[in-house]
Nucleic acid binder design. Structure first.
Length: 490
DNA sequence: CGGTGTTTACATGTGA
DNA sequence: TCACATGTAAACACCG
């Protein structure tokens, strides 16, 4: 059954924008079951996390974990079994996208890392990542076995398929997951490698891309390290100035390129196939694509449901897409227009050891988006539309283009404050793709700054911009508990 | 010297 | 075809 629980699926989709991810999720009545990770796993993971923290962020970088014995095809023999069990277990304790209600303890990632399991493990290299699951297009064994789109891809454990998220999105995710207002580069690395197996085994050049993104992307602000803050490099955070652009609704999510296979693993597969070890392996790699039937079904579903045609179901992606602001008439270099002014800070380095707060960052980088907490915050009116105060005015006179859509520089938000009516207007407009998805994306985006400037946050949920239906829809999608929470609030 | 950060150049995919 | 978004690679500088 491709479209289980249609209505519920829809509401979740529109809220979180992960329509495609949700397509094949088989929801139970409690899509985000609590306490789903076994004690043993918790203990193991906690130990792994402790070890990771003790060893520092660099050593935590599991990108180093690539084992040459990947060339061994033993993992292939075990793959389906492993994945099957992994799939089962992850179904058991997965809240999609890794939200694990009521627990900060990360799950055991390596337990589900085929590259580490089926293939020989890299000893003593546990990744203390929490369970970060992005149910999506394909899982290798199923493809091999059935030649069509299986239930989902667990990017956390699947080293073969590159996550369909842009680097900016990944950075944003890491920032969100850190639950801190700022995050170090190494923490970003760590979170990514912890939560996306692909990057653990990939060529580390992706880190260059991360840095490139941080530097050039206006969404990211470098926060200088304080004098008394030991550690290397600065901190990074999301520029709230661009968060509010979401409210304009003037963005369009971009369709991401098709699934990519880890080239390193592809090479290994090819080599093995070449040596006659596993001809089937090469075929398997070639078959790693979404079948046309599945694509068609997905497309039809999106069309039928009015889902955004840009299927990329990433909430943070939506966030980031709103951030690519370029000056008009420019060529490609405006895609990453450079920040001007005081945002950039001078670098300050320190000892190689992680500063205390960095370790805290790492420890908080459990890879989980605490949706429950987030929604709790939302329900309690704790989420803000900006970083604790009036939104900063846009410091440029130039018109802005967001994903090809013209945005008047703050005329819609007099005084720099994005008024709720903007949201309402865009909600009313059939031309603007602004729905609960955007709403939640905005909500989601704002969460990292909920820790700062605590005292000066507008209560966006108290505004009239959120329909009760939306809330109920959301609540219903997330389970009765939340639903009743909403009900009681109303 | 390694990690971090900036900048430039180019390639590629996508949508208008 | 073009503009744009994104990815990749590389050179370079800074700093502890």
């Amino acid at each position: 059954m491709l479209f289980p629980c249609h209505s519920r699926l829809l509401s979740v989709k529109t809220v979180f924008g992960w329509e495609r991810s949700m397509l094949s999720m088989s929801f139970t009545d409690d899509p985000w079951p609590e306490g789903s990770v076994g004690l043993e796993e918790e203990v193991v993971t906690a130990a792994a996390q402790a070890e990771c923290l003790d060893s520092g962020s660099v050593e935590c970088n599991s990108a180093e974990n690539l084992d040459d014995s990947l060339t061994s095809l033993q993992w292939l023999q075990e793959f389906s079994i492993l994945n099957a069990s992994s799939s089962q277990s992850t179904h058991q304790h997965s809240h999609f996208f890794g939200s694990r209600v009521g627990s900060d303890a990360p799950a055991s990632p390596l337990a589900g890392d085929p590259a580490s399991m089926g293939m020989p493990l890299t000893p003593g290299k546990p990744t203390a990542a929490s369970f970060y699951r992005v149910p999506s297009l394909s899982a290798l064994p199923s493809l091999v076995a059935h030649g069509h789109c299986p239930d989902e891809v667990d990017y956390k454990t699947n080293p073969h398929i590159k996550p369909p998220y842009s680097y900016a999105t990944l950075i944003c995710m890491a920032m969100q997951a850190s639950k801190k207002t700022k995050i170090t580069l190494s923490c970003i690395y760590k979170w990514i490698t912890d939560n996306f197996c692909y990057f653990r085994h990939a060529d580390p050049t992706w880190q260059n891309s991360i840095r490139h993104n941080l530097s050039l992307n206006k969404c990211f602000i470098k926060v200088p390290r304080q004098k008394d803050e030991p550690g290397k490099g600065g901190f990074w955070k999301i520029d709230p100035q661009y968060a509010e652009r979401l409210l304009s609704g003037a963005y369009k999510k971009r369709r991401m390129p098709p699934v990519q296979i880890n080239p390193a693993l592809q090479n290994r597969i090819r080599m093995n196939a070449h040596t006659g070890q596993a001809v089937a392996t090469a075929g398997m790699a070639r078959s790693l694509c979404v079948s046309p039937e599945s694509q068609q079904l997905l497309k039809e579903f999106e069309e039928a449901t009015g889902a955004d045609q840009n299927w990329d179901p990433r909430l943070t992606e939506a966030t980031m897409f709103s951030c690519w602001v370029s000056g008009k008439g420019g060529k490609r270099k405006q895609a990453y227009s450079h920040r001007v002014g005081g945002s950039k800070a001078t670098r300050r380095s320190s000892s190689p050891l992680l500063a205390m707060d960095e370790q805290e960052d790492l420890s908080s980088l459990k890879g989980n988006f605490d949706w429950d907490a987030l929604l709790d915050s939302a329900l309690n009116g704790e989420l803000s539309l900006n970083e604790g105060g009036p939104l900063s005015p846009i410091p440029r006179d130039e018109d802005l283009m967001v994903r090809g859509t013209h945005i008047s520089p703050l005329e819609a938000a007099p005084g720099g404050v994005v008024e709720s009516h903007v949201l309402m207007e865009t909600q009313r407009s059939s031309e603007v793709d602004f729905d609960e998805e955007t709403f939640l994306a905005t909500t989601f985006l704002q969460s990292p700054w909920s820790e700062v400037d605590e005292g000066n946050r507008p209560d966006f949920l108290c505004s009239s911009t959120v329909s009760i239906d939306q809330l109920f829809d959301l609540g219903d999608s997330l389970g009765g508990d939340l639903s009743s929470k909403i009900e009681s609030l109303l």
